[in-house]
């Protein structure tokens, strides 16, 4: 649910990074935070455990520039990836405008990816959304790891509908901004269509 303020001429949108535990959602946000001009970003907040596992969410407010005199602001959130935090994930999906599904490319994590994707679908349905309606992109992260599945294999399992997809190495930033731009663009296009 985007928030349009005609007085301050601002469009605010919410993007959620989803995916299995340790797939690199927080790392995506950290990279964006480190590479963004100070005036375009707010503070990054991580509600994490002592071992840096996300407990509730990470949050990063970001200004992307102006469209027709409207400032566009994106609020980026991550969900906690660990299976048992499902109640928290549902809360964070409320009011979402766009979703990035971060895939852990390692062969050993294929099952975790599929489980998380199914979880995303059912949680969206519970909130009254559906994955084929919400602006949505897929990122194949950790392409630098030794035992990774091929993009074709990952696509067959996790992106059968062929939404925009990006190979990435979030630790070095490869593919991170490409992913963000793609989802932001889809969100704005959806807004333009007035499809909500």
């Amino acid at each position: 649910m985007s928030f349009i303020n005609y007085l301050s001429r601002e469009i605010n949108c919410k993007i959620v990074y989803y995916g299995p535990g340790l797939c690199g959602k927080t790392t995506n946000l950290q990279y964006i935070y480190n590479k963004t001009n100070p005036e375009a970003k707010g503070k990054m907040i991580s509600l994490a455990t002592e071992t840096e596992r996300t407990l509730f969410f990470d949050f990063l407010p970001l200004a992307l520039g102006e469209i027709r005199g409207f400032k566009t602001r994106f609020h980026l959130y991550t969900v906690p990836g660990q299976v048992f935090y499902d109640a928290s994930r549902k809360l964070i999906l409320k009011g979402v405008d766009g979703v990035v599904f971060v895939v852990d490319s390692q062969i050993a994590r294929m099952e975790a990816n599929i489980e998380s994707m199914e979880n995303l679908q059912s949680n969206l349905v519970e909130q009254g959304y559906s994955l084929d309606k919400v602006p949505y992109v897929v990122q194949y992260n950790k392409r630098d790891m030794p035992a990774v599945a091929s993009i074709e294999e990952l696509r067959a399992e996790l992106n059968p509908d062929g939404v925009p997809e990006f190979p990435a190495v979030a630790t070095t930033g490869e593919g991170v901004f490409e992913t963000l731009k793609a989802v932001a663009k889809l969100v704005l296009t959806e807004l333009k269509r007035g499809g909500r």
Partner: peptide
């Protein structure tokens, strides 16, 4: 309820209102 700040008044100068808004909404959601 989604954490977007709508209006503020008082001594807001020292406060990170964007973060406060997001965390408060998270709190209400939880």
């Amino acid at each position: 309820k989604n954490g977007q700040l709508i209006a503020a008044a008082g001594e807001t100068g020292q406060l990170d209102t964007t973060s406060l808004a997001s965390l408060t909404a998270g709190n209400i959601a939880a």
